[in-house]
Design a binder for these strands. Sequence first.
DNA 1: ATGGCTTCATAGTGAAGA
Length: 253
Amino acid sequence: MKIATWNVNSLKVRLPHVLDWLAVNQPDALCLQETKTEDANFPAEELLQAGYQAVFSGQKTYNGVAILSKVEAQDVVMGIPGYNDEQKRVIAATIDGVRVVCVYIPNGQSVDSDKYQYKLSWLAALQAWLREELARYPKLALLGDYNIAPEDRDVYDPQAWQGNVLVSEPERAAFQGLQQLGLRDSFRLFEQPEKTYSWWDYRMMAFRRNMGLRIDHILISQTLECTSCTIDKAPRKLERPSDHTPVVAEVAA
DNA sequence: ATGGCTTCATAGTGAAGA
């Protein structure tokens, strides 16, 4: 079973890229973040014609998540149960017997901002919920834009970024907290090329200079076998790309 | 380079992203 995650930075703008990518890669499930699309405007028909069903939780302008799948998604949950949040950042569903949890973790803006505190409280709520979710669904994958680069090797210039939002110790501790639930960073289960990232700033010719961060991840529970994980840079080279690029993993269904 | 893009809401610029 092939599963993937992609922050598309507006599904409306990126729909042609998404349709092309689905046609070429044929994932069983694709998690999207930053759809920036209200549910009434979700392009369900176009995706269905491409062979994909969709469940989604969106809002105007910001955030918004979706799971596309070849077979029907079951037991859909939106948001973190019991955590009051206006922002549409979570959708979970069971697909082919695998619990697929799609997250758009808050950015945090800067370590001295209210948004950073929101990010840390959000991460604590996520971890508490996932502990229960894992008990109910042992075969679980947590995919999405984490807005956390777990280690210095996931950062193009660790010194310049030291202490910054996306790499700060409390954020990395929260990432490790998820790992302590038994979730494994699928990317690091395999040998990988150095300086592999999933996001590059639109400015500074950052992609061409490979000034990137690895902040999009697929975490896999211990009872779910994982046979590969790769980052597909190809969509980042297209005209008018998302600033993120897909992460793909193969798991045993 | 404390923002050099990009998107969205808007009808000027401003917020937000990471």
